[in-house]
Write a protein that binds this DNA or RNA. Structure first.
Length: 346
DNA sequence: GACACGTGGGG
DNA sequence: TCCCCAAGTGT
């Protein structure tokens, strides 16, 4: 029996009962695929339910404001996914009458839909034979054929795509794609793969050559830069505060935060009190500034190490654009800000 | 084409 | 603790 037949047989008996596997409605498949990009299923599932509940159709999503969509996306990370999801919902609504395009090429042109997602949607929803190649697929194929080409190199990406495309079962491409990914997620895992129960164990070359531990090969490691964020948490008459939107092309784009002073090194009270930002906001009015957390909070991102300091500014002054504390929960904020808000007692 | 973009869980 | 990584995409 060949690779895809064996795999599909195993898949049909072992697949998980996931919420987006109930039918092949392209809206729901699309939503699940976007949510699952670089994201664990357990982390994505609650968001999938939240979105389906609030936006049952693509029209509901298209009608929403971006701020509202980002609020629902809050905590999931990679926020461009949320922005692109919303953008594409509007695009499909206005250009295609809300009907999802059913071919790979058109799908791939949509914002937030790359080669993988276009393949996944076109195969699962429209039965087109496009191999969906994600990290799971690369790992399964690299091991099964014992290939040491780095999976994240240009050469590797091209190679594994072609290989997967050769192996696809054109009669059931969607099932095939999900079968490879499911095997990668449940059996052929990055660490401690369950080779003894793998349906492909007899023909697996990495198992035979004892290279399971070193394949797949990945090249280059990322380096983290350090940043220092000082958030000015205004507490105005114990009832209001200030939030501003992050509009620049940077992390957390279009999310809200407390007014920020970014410094080259760890800041002290003097740096804050003498800052232009604070003085422009507060003028000559009376304030008290308190350092909220004694030790900077370290928030680790993939490429950044952010040391965060919250400075509480108490004042009686009425500030422009102040927001009632009880309304703060309506704004999409980065996770460290959300954590602060939840723990902060006025 | 290399790099940036989040968060949380596991070893 | 720290590093890896998880259904990738955009620039």
């Amino acid at each position: 029996m060949d690779f895809s037949k064996q795999l599909i047989l195993w898949y049909l008996q072992n697949k998980r009962d996931l919420p987006w596997r109930k039918d092949t409605n392209p809206y729901q498949i699309w939503l699940s695929e976007i949510i699952l990009q670089q994201t664990r299923i357990s982390q994505g599932i609650p968001y999938y339910f939240k979105f389906i509940r609030k936006y049952p159709t693509i029209f509901d999503l298209a009608s929403a404001e971006e701020d509202e969509v980002l609020k629902l996306w809050q905590g999931l990370g990679y926020y461009s996914r949320g922005r692109n999801l919303h953008h594409t919902a509007r695009y499909i609504t206005t250009h295609f009458n809300g009907i999802f395009p059913n071919d790979f090429k058109t799908l791939k042109k949509l914002r937030g839909i790359g080669d993988y997602t276009a393949s996944a949607i076109s195969s699962i929803c429209f039965n087109q034979a496009h191999a969906a190649v994600d990290g799971n697929v690369q790992r399964v194929l690299a091991r099964f054929f014992n290939i040491n080409t780095p999976v994240n190199s240009t050469k590797g990406i091209k190679y594994f795509k072609e290989l997967a495309q050769e192996l696809i079962d054109p009669a059931q491409p969607g099932t095939y794609n999900q079968a490879v990914m499911e095997l990668g997620a449940l059996i052929c895992t990055p660490k401690n793969p369950q080779c003894t129960v793998c349906p492909l164990q007899e023909a697996c070359k990495a198992l035979k050559h004892k290279t399971i531990e070193i394949i797949p090969v990945k090249e280059k490691k990322i380096r983290r830069r350090k940043r220092f964020f000082n958030f000015l948490v205004f507490n105005i008459n114990n009832s209001s505060t200030l939030l501003v939107k992050r509009t620049e092309k940077d992390i957390w784009q279009n999310l809200f935060q407390f007014p920020l002073i970014e410094t080259k090194n760890e800041a002290g009270l003097k740096d804050i009190v003498q800052s232009d930002l604070l003085n422009n906001l507060i003028g000559t009015n009376e304030i008290t500034v308190e350092q909220q957390n004694f030790k900077p909070l370290v928030h680790k991102l993939t490429h950044q190490d952010i040391q965060i300091q919250f400075w509480v500014i108490k004042t009686q002054t009425t500030l422009k654009n102040a927001i009632k504390w009880k309304n703060v929960i309506n704004f999409a904020v980065p996770t460290p800000i959300d954590n602060f808000i939840k723990s902060y007692q006025k």
